[in-house]
């Protein structure tokens, strides 16, 4: 059984956010919820400043605190290492969200996509209501809903349950790459079988010194980061006292 992992090359990543947008489209992610996100940091004082950008997603930890803590087994591991969530078993206790050290699990506080459920036209007698647009487009709640998502998970998760990245398990099942990987214009995301030494991810992890987020917690994340973009130069010296 392959063991899936992702390598994010920070030298190639330009922080365009295409991964996040692709993820939203592929997984019908509601507003206020981010399966694919980023952490940014600005350090230094002008003109010596630097902007750090780290894309984030569920780390699909080997020792996942969310899986260990879920009282009903709604959060579980697939044999291929992907951490999945079953909304049908979820009681909405939010312990996984509370317990996740990476802040990548979100709760549906209300019925998702409320805008597209509106039944009142924006301009009476002139425009359609948002729900009518969806109906005409033949969508499910959203006019642009992706039906493929429903293959392994409810296409749109109900209110009162959590949701998070699944490494696009429905695509991986069909030997397709996760959609954030597919959509990255800079090929900064590399996905594959970490148990295969010949896979691209294994080779990259051997070639560069990778790091993972909060490694000291022992969660063994399956998302690795390599390199870092830095075009800055400085004059060589030994400093001064």
């Amino acid at each position: 059984m392959p063991q899936y992992a992702m390598v994010i090359d920070l030298q190639r990543c330009v922080g365009c956010g295409a991964c996040s947008i692709a993820c939203r489209n592929e997984n019908n992610v509601p507003d206020g919820i981010y399966w694919s996100d980023k952490m940014t940091e600005t350090v230094g004082t002008f003109p010596d400043v630097r902007f750090h950008y780290i894309p984030t997603l569920c780390n699909h930890c080997e020792n996942a605190p969310c899986v260990r803590g879920c009282p009903t087994g709604a959060m579980y591991k697939l044999d291929n290492g992907i951490t999945m969530h079953d909304p049908d078993k979820c009681i909405g206790c939010k312990y996984c969200e509370f317990n996740c050290p990476y802040g990548v699990i979100y709760f549906n506080w209300q019925t998702p996509h409320p805008f597209w459920r509106e039944t009142t036209p924006l301009i009476e007698g002139c425009t359609l209501a948002a729900s009518e647009v969806t109906k005409k487009a033949g969508g499910n709640t959203l006019p642009y809903a992706n039906p493929d998502r429903e293959e392994t998970l409810p296409g749109i998760r109900p209110k009162g349950v959590v949701e998070k990245c699944t490494f696009c398990d429905h695509r991986v099942k069909k030997n397709l790459l996760p959609y954030c990987v597919e959509a990255c214009p800079a090929n900064a995301r590399i996905f594959g079988d970490i148990s295969d030494p010949k896979s691209k991810v294994s080779k990259l992890l051997g070639k560069f010194r990778p790091f993972r987020l909060k490694e000291h917690l022992g969660t063994n994340p399956r998302v690795y980061y390599i390199r870092g973009y830095n075009p800055a130069q400085y004059e060589a010296s030994k400093g001064d006292v």
């Binding site: 260990r68 009903t72 078993k89 909405g92 009162g160």
Partner: peptide
């Protein structure tokens, strides 16, 4: 709880590590 209607899974699908 967000979804107390699913409380049956507390018995049907217990996670003893939780």
């Amino acid at each position: 709880l967000g979804n107390m209607g699913k409380m049956l899974y507390f018995i049907l699908s217990p996670n003893l590590a939780s």
